[in-house]
Structure formats: structure tokens, C-alpha cells
């Protein structure tokens, strides 16, 4: 089974990388873009286990994301 964990900086945390991309995009004529936030995706291939959802939530909180600066969301595939 595939699981995707999306991690990005919280809205309250400045994302200078997103800001740099936004400025470059605007200079290149993509002036309709108002904001860019950069994040990362973790693709996990998992085997059957008990309490899968809780375990994925736990590892997201403890390792994949740092909740002080980042937020995450989990997408469970087939």
C-alpha cells in the first residue's frame, strides 16, 4: 500500500525559498501567481500492520515533520 505524507512550512513561518521562486516567476511574466510555498512529499510503501493510521500520524509528527515549524497531511492510497 502507498501512503503520501505532505510537509510544508506553517503559514506563520516565512518561506524564503518560496519567496525567491515567487519573485523569479513574476519576473518571467507569471504575474498572476500571488504566493509560493515550498514543501516536500514522502512516498511510503507500507505493508499491513495494526493501527496503521496512528502509526503514520506518529512518524509524521515525530520524524517527517517538525511541528514547531511545519504542518503535514497524510494521503492513504491503495
Amino acid at each position: 500500500m502507498k501512503i503520501k505524507v505532505y510537509v510544508k512550512l506553517k503559514e506563520t513561518v516565512l518561506d524564503p525559498q518560496g519567496e525567491a521562486i515567487l519573485q523569479s516567476a513574476k519576473r518571467n511574466g507569471y504575474d498572476f501567481i500571488d504566493s509560493v510555498r515550498v514543501g516536500k512529499i514522502f512516498e511510503l510503501e507500507v505493508s499491513k500492520t495494526e493501527n496503521l493510521n496512528e502509526k503514520i500520524d506518529e512518524i509524521s509528527k515525530k520524524m517527517l515533520a517538525n511541528p514547531i515549524i511545519e504542518e503535514y497531511s497524510i494521503e492513504v492510497g491503495e
Binding site: P16, A20, I68, I69
Partner: peptide, 11 residues
């Protein structure tokens, strides 16, 4: 320790 260390402001 509290807080976190982010990428430098000027990258």
C-alpha cells in the same frame, strides 16, 4: 531546546 533553525533569510 525550544524553537527550530530555518534556512538563512538570504538562502
Amino acid at each position: 531546546l525550544p524553537g527550530a533553525l530555518l534556512r538563512n533569510r538570504d538562502l
